[in-house]
Design a protein around this nucleic acid. Sequence first.
DNA 1: GTGTAACCGAGACGGTACGTCGAGTCTTTCC
DNA 2: GGAAAGACTCGACGTACCGTCTCGGTTACAC
Lengths: 209, 209, 209, 209
Amino acid sequence: MEVSARGRPRSSDLDQRILAAARDALAAGGYEALSMEAVARAAGVGKQTLYRRWPRRPLLVMDAVLPGVPPGVSPGRGQPDTGSLAGDLAAIVAEQTRADQAVGQRLLRGLVADCLGQEDLTEVLRARLLRPRLRAVGVAAERAARRGELAADVPPALVAEVVAGAMLSRLLLLGTRPDELAFGRRLARLVAHGVCLPASNGAARPPDG
Amino acid sequence: MEVSARGRPRSSDLDQRILAAARDALAAGGYEALSMEAVARAAGVGKQTLYRRWPRRPLLVMDAVLPGVPPGVSPGRGQPDTGSLAGDLAAIVAEQTRADQAVGQRLLRGLVADCLGQEDLTEVLRARLLRPRLRAVGVAAERAARRGELAADVPPALVAEVVAGAMLSRLLLLGTRPDELAFGRRLARLVAHGVCLPASNGAARPPDG
Amino acid sequence: MEVSARGRPRSSDLDQRILAAARDALAAGGYEALSMEAVARAAGVGKQTLYRRWPRRPLLVMDAVLPGVPPGVSPGRGQPDTGSLAGDLAAIVAEQTRADQAVGQRLLRGLVADCLGQEDLTEVLRARLLRPRLRAVGVAAERAARRGELAADVPPALVAEVVAGAMLSRLLLLGTRPDELAFGRRLARLVAHGVCLPASNGAARPPDG
Amino acid sequence: MEVSARGRPRSSDLDQRILAAARDALAAGGYEALSMEAVARAAGVGKQTLYRRWPRRPLLVMDAVLPGVPPGVSPGRGQPDTGSLAGDLAAIVAEQTRADQAVGQRLLRGLVADCLGQEDLTEVLRARLLRPRLRAVGVAAERAARRGELAADVPPALVAEVVAGAMLSRLLLLGTRPDELAFGRRLARLVAHGVCLPASNGAARPPDG
DNA sequence: GTGTAACCGAGACGGTACGTCGAGTCTTTCC
DNA sequence: GGAAAGACTCGACGTACCGTCTCGGTTACAC
């Protein structure tokens, strides 16, 4: 039911030139060096042409550097099934961390910085940075539940939130360090089994208040 | 043995006028509405005077809205000792969430946004937003360890990171919801006891790989 | 074969609004009161728009108050031919003085003050304040030479320089007084006939050394 | 009758340090580079101390670079008496030009630029740049009058004004060129004998209108 | 074909904030 | 009260981007 495309169609060649110019600018001077003005200039493109496609800077940057979701692929693609929740979580953390490092921590921080100020952009950020992680962890948690591994009163969403939150806060605030792999394993173990010794009395898992 | 203060001393009265003007601007239009220009104007102060004290906007905002650390008070002040790690964690999350809500989620996001782009400001952010939380959780974890509640191979810093990360990512990305108290309890229980059912065999706490 | 004007053309309406605002500012507070900032504000125009046309304050002021050379008019327009060099010079001085008084001595001083510090502006000043006077006097001197009135060894340019110099130094330093007309006549006679009594011997006009 | 000097007397050593700093600044970056701020800094002197002595920048510069009038010396010092008005004028122009070149044309233009905008400073400028020249020419003219060389109806002040005006406009606007000596001779001859051929009829010196 | 509508480069435009600079004045402490 | 230091008000500077707009001109589809 799309209204028939009238007028001159957009040149998809320009999309590429613009994205390339954006990536160049990011590589050259980081997120700060990327102004819409500069990108248009470098791409040899009018500002209107740029704004028509990406009305906000973060949207452009996301399309330039974040891996697009390949259409028609199931969300659980590539997710390992190691047989235990702890193993799955460690694998997810490792994979996400690798992806983040490919993009670059500085760039991601700049991007988040530019989104957090406005609610609509924050929502986009959630969609592209946060929700994929929540989903990945959630899927693993649900699999664990089906397997009977998960305690009955633990909502998979909570697990997802804790794991994703730890990943993101490291990425954005703390800074990731080379031993990210080990961190993933520790985090997975913590989430799976908790930090407390099993108490001899039954109080170890009191009912939820 | 500070070098004797030469020249005219800075007027602490102006400090207050500036901070008040900053708070007004924040209250009126949120973080975005606060420009150094506007604050100087509203405070009836030259821009130089403002830049002399707070050379960057986030520094001004932090001093305007974040609770300063009262000098000479032990870092562990006010921390409850509920007798269990889970209880302590829930209390900490509740307290921090309350404090964050007093400042305001929108404002905090704007502030973080303005800092993340530059490393030096990110460091300040760590010092004022992140480390107090890490420290609070760390203290509770160490107390639990002394109590014998904590598993031997769990570093308190990891606990701190996970809990603080979950809090912050909710604050910054997910958005806190009214039932923050319940979230705190759930998070605390998750961290304390994990999400997996205790396995009948001894594999529940395998040694760290 | 000017390259075809690309992009949005400048609005000539804005030119007028800016010049009007400049004249208002000059009328209100003299040269000192005219800041680029104030003109842009008063004209309801962005500063960039102002700087794009007049990148320096003196250039704006000149276009605002100095009579532009009407295109296609011969440079000698309006120059009187009284039949004698002395008469012509007196007429020129009178006319220029009248024009200067129309602009205002204070304003002209401010303008010159703002130009003298930089060589490029001084050159513009020469083009718009000095050279028209040199040309006017030079034309009269050449006419006198053709008429056989001028001594053979007197370069017209020297006459021009002396007369224009006397006018300008009065304007800028000494200050003109109400009897400017009489000054013009005296100056003209001095230049034409010198100040010395004709010597009885032929030494009155010794050859140039 | 001087009121008794109270408090700490001013250190004349500081005067010298300040003047030296001013000269350094002028030498380094021309008139524009000399700000009161910079001079105070370079001289290691408080701004108040500087302003107490030279409340305006041009006053400081004048004292720094213009030859002070040595006290108790007759104003006509060093003025040659060549026996003819033309000779005296040429000598005066030559001497003044030499003095101006010692100070520097760029610096003098900057100085004049800084004075012209305000009437009080313009008056000081007259006193130090213009009147000495007027006086020198005036003295020569009066000597010529006593000698019987000058036409009866020519006021010496007019001669002074024309000669000084020609000198100053060259200095400030036209720019002096290396052949300043020749200019002086030509100017002197022009002023002495005029530019017109003596007419055969008696109309050469018509009575003043 | 000939509208008509959207695209396109270029750059003008109003607006807003930036961070710096200099002029003078004021306020300390020290001498 | 002189002096050094530096805080202070004021206001302009010139630049940079933002996001919108107006040009001349170019495609493409629809009639």
